[in-house]
Amino acid sequence: MLLKTLITRLLTMIVTLFGVAVVVFTLVRVAPGNPIAMMLPPGASEEDIARLTALYGFDKSLVQQFFIWLGGVVQGDFGTSITLRQPVDQLVLSRLPATLELAAMALVIALLLGGTVAVLGARNRGTGTEVGLDLTSGAVLSIPDFLWGLIFVLIFGVLWPVLAISGRIDPRIEFDFATNFYLIEGLLRGRFDVVGSTLSHMVMPAMSLALPLAAMIAQLLKQNLKGELVQDYATIARVRGFSETTVILREALRNAALPTIALVGVQFTFLIGGTVIVERLFAYEGLGNMAIDAVINRDLPLIQGIVLLFAAIFIMINLIVDLSYTLLNPRLRHG
């Protein structure tokens, strides 16, 4: 059953990715701006322009170009970045860990923060505390991630400069990374200066991405918790002497989490989208930052590679959400 779902989903994934490939390939070529013009100094001769155009294959028809590119992609060759002169797959994979660490950190913060506020709200339902928490999360939700980034820079970068405001790690730290997962590798190799510096660089962008999601989780999970707490099984647990907090954590939370997970999955893909602008804001060396550079420089192969990867990540997240939903719900497990 699970295997069948998995195979169906993987096949759908290929179709979706093909669609994304067609759209992104067409869009970057329809959009104004010429990569060749960006590469040559002003006053370059017609022959130079023609030679370079032919070198990158831009003289062929769109359809021909598309299938040349797609043929490469299928074999794992995503082309060469025009501006950075390196294979796109290497560039993209070198940046992916930074974005994954950032997004994962943001998700963990959002779940912990949102979950805690939801439980507190449900615990104090019908009181001023609940109203206060609702108002706060409503306000937090109304401020978008990049604005949170600016607010944090102002507070922790300027007024009370305790956190690093740009980059991913202090460049003075000497450490020979085997992977680009700085945080994980630092932890595994016991280099806590690396971990500390990475965290100091990561906490503001991660918080910026996490706060709106945390507020959303807080609101939705609290609502679901309140729905579960009037169920008979919760009443019975109270009659058996369990405190309200125990009833929430042990009885209601898992039931309330199920419908919340579906939303968190969708919202998490928005969070990944948010990394593009937030990474730019903090000069964080991730995929999103690279995407903006690629767009500015009309680096067509690089844009295509990054967009395809983002699409694959979105699909994977949705798949993981669906699978976790099945695993958490015993009613679906054997069905």
Binding site: Q231, D232, Y233, G241
Partner: peptide, 24 residues
């Protein structure tokens, strides 16, 4: 009060379908 009630008494509810936690 909660502890006394729990020790002294118990409840058999109306609807057995909602009285057991579906996820435990």
């Amino acid at each position: 009060r909660r502890n006394t009630v729990a020790r002294m008494s118990a409840l058999i509810p109306q609807d057995p379908l909602t009285a057991l936690n579906p996820l435990r």
